[in-house]
């Protein structure tokens, strides 16, 4: 399975090779999508994990034991779909395919699993309906 998580870690964790350990010890393919890491401050990573469910679960347990806050990405992005007018202004800026138009009913289709938290939709939406907490 594939899943995306935001990892928040404390200043003293910044120099620990977390991704290396996830790969080596838990056999998880890691794709780093975004990162804010400043020495002496809290760090934040957006990663995609590719492995079987069991391995991912063990990897997440390891992270939690290391005091890393693990948040599934879907919990940090949201679209107020009931207010959407389905104009499509967010679609052409979306690099990941998370936002697409259903060409039968002309409604916006949002697939949070595909999102890479780039935030372009947040700027493009004329109704300001997206919420993305990654950088905050």
């Amino acid at each position: 399975m594939k899943a995306k998580f935001i990892l928040n870690f404390k200043p003293d964790m910044v120099d620990k090779p977390l991704t290396y350990l996830l790969i080596k010890e838990y056999d998880i393919k890691i794709n780093i999508l975004r990162g804010i890491i400043t020495p002496g401050k809290e760090g934040r990573l957006l990663i995609e994990m590719i492995a079987d469910d069991d391995a991912i679960e063990k990897g997440l347990e390891f992270l939690r034991n290391e005091n890393v806050e693990v948040i599934p990405l879907q919990k940090k992005i949201s679209l107020r779909e009931d207010e959407c007018v389905h104009c499509g202004a967010c679609i052409s800026v979306c690099p990941s395919g998370a936002l697409e138009m259903n060409r039968e009913n002309w409604m916006l289709v949002f697939t949070p699993e595909q999102c890479v938290a780039c935030g372009l939709c947040k700027s493009a939406c004329p109704l300001r309906l997206f919420k993305l907490d990654f950088a905050e």
Binding site: H86, C87, G88, A89, I91, W106, M107
Partner: peptide
């Protein structure tokens, strides 16, 4: 344009609309 992709200079580009077909 409404198909979601057009080719410009041999490159495929994603299209989006400002105006809502749904509405």
């Amino acid at each position: 344009l409404k198909s979601g992709r057009i080719e410009v200079d041999g490159k495929e580009i994603t299209t989006g609309s400002m105006s809502s077909m749904y509405k």
